[in-house]
Computed example of a mutant assay.
Amino acid sequence: MSLLAVRNLTKRFGGNTAVDDISFDLEAGELLALIGPNGAGKSTTFNMMGGQLPASSGSVRFDGRELLGMPSRRIAHQGIGRTFQIAATFASFTVLENVQMALLSHHRQVYSFWRPAIGRHRDEALRLLEQVGMGSQAGRPCSELAYGDVKRVELAMSLAGKPRLLLMDEPTAGMAPAERNALVALVKSLVLQNDMAVLFTEHSMDVVFAYADRIIVLARGQLIAQGSAQQIRAHPKVQEVYFGTGKTFETLAPGATPP
């Protein structure tokens, strides 16, 4: 049985079908990329899986348990982490305090602005920061960090719940090419170390083709292809959706984003 099984997932907004009857599987230890042009339905798919948006129909089963209909907080406690296109951290808190806050939430402990988190789960938070290469910056406010480092802090926060599945929506958005590759290489290493599954959306094809174990492609809400990087590069329907005619992914400049 697959760790994640998505079947006939559909989302309609009035007369518009944003996600149209898509099905796919994800295994433990796999880094799966979900790609497609703007408006393909990627974020809508993520938001249904994460409980931020109700599905019109279909099924999303994680380790045999149905997720659709669960609130997002309960989904997180099933062993599913989530990062967003825009990093969600407390800018005025230190790097360490942000991860401590995530650990308080995971342990379902009450936090109050009148009862600072300092000292609670400190060692565990530091271990998570070391995993993502941010241990040396634990005492800095997040407001002082470069954007790529903020993304690393968000990754550490998402790992606080010891997820077996991590959903990452545009994890490298706004990052320079070197930062993009470093972050996804880090995620890939965490997948291998922890036998964790990752589903991520991404516009940067260099990152997708370099690190994804498998790729699924959406266009206008429909799943049009899935396979290895080599298979997706050569898939005529995918090339048509991204480029029209006369271009291929091989002609795309390194680090560039398809139109």
Rank of each mutant, 00 (worst) to 15 (best):
Q222Y: 00
N98T: 02
I215V: 15
L129Y: 08
D195Y: 02
F200E: 05
A156I: 00
V187K: 00
R73E: 13
D20R: 08
R127G: 09
Q222G: 08
N181L: 10
A88K: 15
H203M: 01
E154K: 04
S143F: 01
L4F: 09
E154G: 05
F249Y: 12
E250Y: 04
V150F: 03
L53W: 13
T45Y: 11
V238C: 06
A146T: 12
A87V: 15
I118V: 08
E170F: 10
L68H: 11
G161T: 04
L166E: 01
L159W: 02
A138Q: 01
H203R: 04
P177G: 05
M168A: 08
R82C: 02
Q239N: 15
A212V: 09
P163G: 02
Q109M: 12
G36D: 13
R127V: 15
T45E: 05
P259R: 14
R164V: 07
G227F: 09
I224N: 12
G51F: 13
V6R: 08
N98I: 00
Y242S: 03
K237T: 15
D169E: 03
N98M: 06
W114M: 12
I118A: 00
K151V: 06
V207E: 06
D123I: 13
K151W: 07
L186T: 12
N47T: 05
A18I: 08
L31D: 07
E202H: 13
G15Y: 02
H106E: 15
Q193L: 11
P259F: 14
V132F: 00
D149L: 04
A102G: 06
V184L: 02
I86R: 13
R220P: 03
V6M: 10
A219L: 12
G139R: 15
E154W: 03
E144L: 15
R74I: 10
P54N: 11
R164Y: 01
S112V: 04
N38M: 12
T245R: 00
E154D: 11
T248M: 10
L192S: 13
A197H: 06
A156Q: 10
L3F: 10
K237Y: 11
W114V: 14
M175Q: 05
Q193T: 09
L53F: 15
L31I: 05
Q226S: 13
G41L: 11
K162H: 13
G221R: 08
L159V: 14
A87D: 07
G81P: 01
Y147C: 01
T10P: 11
G15S: 12
A176F: 11
S57T: 08
H107G: 07
Q100K: 07
T17E: 06
E97D: 07
L223T: 03
T245G: 01
